[in-house]
């Protein structure tokens, strides 16, 4: 019995001490983490907005979608669940005169060296196109966008998300 209570006490003590350490670390890092995440989001908004944009302001359209507006353009977050390896989160940027500016990838798990090119080389395939009149499908499906070679599924997912963003964008322009 004495042995047994020693086992219980030791394990309890280790758990309580570790719990205390983790919760202290949580309290200390909670605020800095929030600030760091906000800075990261802000950086990606500024990245996709037309060059030389001023401070973005957070807004909500009638459908309840959050977007950001600056003096030169708009930015919004869109995600797609049809990536090759699941969810892809994107930040899309639009100009004020009806063009899709560019996007940046917030998070993805596409195949490294294939689908992962959506974070770099593929941006140039879609950048600076008219939002409404572009056929946002890959060439294989009859659209205008040249997909990443051997990563059509990843390219298709990004194009789908952009098309969805363009619909929201036209709503915003119409004041909906």
């Amino acid at each position: 019995m004495k042995d047994f209570s020693k086992l219980v006490l030791t394990l309890t003590a280790v758990c309580v001490i570790c719990g205390a350490v983790v919760s202290t670390a949580y309290m200390v890092t909670k605020e800095p983490i929030r600030i760091a995440n906000e800075a990261k989001k802000r950086a990606s908004i500024l990245d996709v907005m037309p060059e030389g944009s001023g401070d973005p302001v957070t807004k909500t359209n009638l459908a309840g979608r959050i977007y950001w507006e600056s003096d030169k353009g708009y930015a919004m977050e869109i995600s797609s669940n049809s990536g090759y390896a699941g969810r892809i989160d994107l930040m899309l940027g639009f100009t004020k005169d009806g063009r899709f500016n560019k996007y940046s990838v917030l998070s993805h798990s596409e195949t490294p060296t294939l689908g992962s090119h959506i974070t770099d080389t593929f941006v140039a395939h879609v950048t600076n196109r008219p939002a409404a009149s572009t056929d946002w499908r890959v060439t294989k499906d009859g659209g205008e966008i040249v997909p990443i070679s051997s990563a059509t599924i990843s390219s298709r997912a990004v194009c789908g998300a952009i098309a969805e963003g363009c619909a929201v964008y036209s709503d915003i322009l119409e004041g909906k």
Binding site: D3, K6, L7, T10, L11, V14, C15, C18, G19, V21, V22, A25, Y26, V28, T29, P32, I33, A36
Partner: peptide
């Protein structure tokens, strides 16, 4: 640490270490 409960104790220590490291990294 008595040897009968050493594995759960080690795992708790390791998990705590990793969690703290993750939070510190995320913050700073």
């Amino acid at each position: 640490v008595p040897s009968q409960v050493r594995i759960p104790c080690y795992i708790v220590v390791i998990a705590a270490f990793v969690t703290v490291l993750q939070m510190l990294m995320q913050a700073f």
